[in-house]
Amino acid sequence: MLHLVLFLIFGAICVAGAVNLLVQRHPINSALSLVAVMASLAVEYLLLGAEFVAAVQVIVYAGAIMVLFVFVIMLLNAGEEARTGGSRVAILFGIPGMLAGSLLVAWVLITHSGTQEVSAGALPGPPREIANLLFHDFLLPFEVTSVLVLIAIMGAVVLAARPESIEQQKREG
């Protein structure tokens, strides 16, 4: 019962936040509603018994990534977005395409999904078992991911650095 109520409340917050993200014209409002989406998704993960993923979701997504987004929005001082009204092709093909896609997804979900119940409690995903998988079965992908993150950090620093400072470093070095 509690599980159902929590699922409904936070699922509704999640979808409403996503809609608000699209409706808002100012990027900072969209960023804040994305934080709401992330936080309510963390509660959904808790309901599914994935405690570790919920913690990572809050720390990495709602914390680190969204701080990065808000920082860039402040840095660029981006104002409200002007509406263009959309193109005629988009309306002609987009709306029927969207309807067809939604119907397809609904049909697949209804016909191909079992009715296995997902209940709260008896949590199957304690951090110890995830760590065992992560550092034993998936050790190589884990190490490759660390290289990926390192390269991404270096790429971000090179991209965001001022061109003059790179030239200066070349002359000095």
Binding site: V53, V56, Q57, V60, Y61, A64, I65, L68, F69, V72, T145, L148, V149, A152, I153, G155, A156, V157, V158, L159, A160
Partner: peptide, 13 residues
Amino acid sequence: ITDAAAEAAVGLG
């Protein structure tokens, strides 16, 4: 989630 963090850093850069 890790990939999303890397993607956000590079995209914003």
